[in-house]
Simulated assay, not measured.
Amino acid sequence: MAAAEPALLRAWYRSAPWLWLLRPLELLFRGVSWMRRRAYRCGLLSVYRAAVPVVVVGNITVGGTGKTPVVIALVEALQARGLRPGVISRGYGAARGAVFPHRVGADSSARDCGDEPLLIHLRTGAPCVVSPNRVAALRMLLADTTVDLVLSDDGLQHYALGRDFEIALMDASRQLGNGFCLPAGPLREPRARLNEVDYLLCRGSDDPRHGVIYESQGLVRVIEETNAAPAAIPAPGSAIHAITGIGQPQQFFASLEAAGFSLSPRVLPDHHPFSAADFAGLDDKPIIMTEKDAVKCRGFATPQMWFLKISARVPAPLLEAVAALAHPRS
Rank of each mutant, 00 (worst) to 15 (best):
L9H: 15
W12K: 05
L22Q: 06
L27G: 02
L28P: 00
S33M: 11
M35A: 15
Y40F: 15
G43F: 08
A51M: 10
G58V: 06
I60K: 08
T61F: 09
T68D: 05
V70Q: 12
R84A: 14
P85I: 10
I88H: 07
G93Q: 00
A98E: 04
F100E: 07
P101S: 01
P101G: 06
G105Y: 05
G105D: 15
A110P: 12
A110W: 09
A110G: 09
G114I: 13
H121G: 00
H121S: 05
T124N: 03
T124F: 02
C128E: 08
V129S: 03
V135Y: 03
A136R: 11
A136E: 10
A136G: 10
L141A: 13
L141H: 06
D144K: 11
T146N: 06
D153P: 01
D154V: 02
G155Y: 09
L156T: 01
H158I: 04
H158R: 02
F165R: 06
S173Y: 12
R174F: 13
Q175E: 05
N178G: 03
A184V: 08
G185L: 12
L187P: 07
A192F: 09
A192E: 14
V197I: 14
V197R: 12
D198P: 02
Y199C: 03
L200Q: 04
D207Q: 04
G211W: 02
I213E: 12
Y214F: 15
E215V: 15
E215A: 15
S216R: 02
S216P: 04
Q217Y: 14
G218K: 02
L219G: 01
I223R: 14
N227Q: 01
I233H: 10
P234R: 06
A235H: 07
A235G: 00
A235E: 07
G237E: 09
G237K: 13
G237W: 11
A242Q: 07
T244K: 07
G247C: 08
Q248L: 14
Q251G: 10
F253V: 13
A259V: 03
G260F: 10
S264C: 06
V267M: 11
L268F: 15
H271K: 07
F274S: 07
F274I: 15
A276M: 10
A276S: 15
A280F: 11
D284A: 15
K285F: 01
M289S: 13
T290V: 03
E291A: 13
Q304R: 12
W306A: 00
I310W: 04
V314H: 09
L318I: 03
L319D: 01
P328V: 04
R329F: 09
